[in-house]
C-alpha cells in the first residue's frame, strides 16, 4: 500500500500524468497518476491517504524544488496537471465528505487585469496541498470576491495582479473585503507586488512564490 502511494507521490512530483504522456522521457509507457490513483482505489487504499501521502506529498516536493530554483514553471505546472488528473478520481469522496480538505481558498486576478499564469500556478499549488480552491478567474471585482467569500465560508482569499495599473485596484478590493468580511485572511501576489505594498494596502500576507503562500495557509489551520 505504501508502495503505491509513494508511486503516486513520485509521479506527481515528476509530472507523469498518465501512461500515454511522453513526459518524463525516462518514464515513457509507464503508468502515471491517472492509472495509479484508479488502481489504489480499487485496492482499497483510503482516498484520504491518496490525497495526503500521494498528491500533497508530491506537490510539496516539487514546490520545494521550485522555491530553490531547481525546477521551473513548466515542471511545476505539469506536476499540477498530474495531480489534477488524479484528483478527479477523488471527487466523489470530496462530495460525500469522506475526504476532508484543509479549508476553502478563493483566488482571482483583480479587476482590469487579464493575466492568469501566476494565479493558475498558485491555485494549483494550493489545491495540491489539500485545500479546496475556488478560482474566480481574471478581471474579478470586489463584489464577486465578497459574494464568493460569503457563500463559501472560505478561510483565505488571494488577489493577483501583473499590471502596475491594476495593482492599484488591489487596495480598493482589500478595503471593501475588509469592510464586509473582516475575519478573512487576504493574500496578495504578482510580479509588481512586494511586501511593502502588501503592508501599505492592509493585506495579511505576501509571498514571492507559491510555496510561501502554501506554508502560510497551512499555518492558519495547523
Amino acid at each position: 500500500m505504501e508502495n503505491i502511494l509513494e508511486k503516486i507521490a513520485y509521479c506527481t512530483e515528476f509530472g507523469k500524468i498518465n501512461k500515454v504522456s511522453p513526459y518524463p522521457p525516462d518514464m515513457k509507457g509507464q503508468d502515471g497518476v491517472d492509472e495509479l490513483t484508479k488502481l489504489a482505489l480499487e485496492q482499497g487504499v483510503s482516498p484520504n491517504d491518496i490525497l495526503t501521502k500521494g498528491f500533497v506529498l508530491g506537490m510539496e516536493r516539487v514546490g520545494k524544488k521550485f522555491s530553490e530554483n531547481k525546477v521551473f514553471v513548466p515542471q511545476m505546472l505539469i506536476s499540477a496537471k498530474a495531480m489534477t488528473t488524479g484528483m478527479a478520481h477523488l471527487k466523489p469522496f470530496f462530495t460525500s465528505g469522506e475526504v476532508k480538505r484543509k479549508g476553502k481558498f478563493i483566488i482571482g486576478t483583480v479587476a482590469g487585469d487579464l493575466h492568469d499564469i501566476g494565479k493558475n500556478l498558485v491555485a494549483m499549488m494550493v489545491e495540491g496541498s489539500g485545500w479546496e480552491v475556488i478560482d474566480l478567474g481574471v478581471d474579478v471585482n470586489s463584489d464577486k470576491f465578497i459574494q464568493n467569500i460569503k457563500n463559501s465560508n472560505a478561510t483565505a482569499v488571494a488577489l493577483s495582479a501583473l499590471l502596475t495599473t491594476t495593482m492599484v485596484n488591489m487596495e480598493k478590493i482589500v478595503k471593501e473585503i475588509r469592510g464586509q468580511v473582516p475575519e478573512i485572511k487576504i493574500c496578495v501576489g504578482g510580479a509588481p507586488v512586494n511586501q511593502e505594498f502588501c503592508a501599505k494596502i492592509g493585506a495579511d500576507h505576501y509571498s514571492p512564490d507559491p510555496q510561501g503562500l502554501v506554508e502560510y495557509l497551512n499555518r492558519l489551520v495547523a
Binding site: 500524468i17 513526459y23 514553471v73 513548466p74 505539469i78 493575466h115 499564469i117
Partner: peptide, 11 residues
C-alpha cells in the same frame, strides 16, 4: 495561452 504553453512545450 501562457499557462498552457508551459506544459505543451513538454508534452
Amino acid at each position: 495561452d501562457m499557462t498552457e504553453i508551459m506544459t505543451a512545450a513538454i508534452i
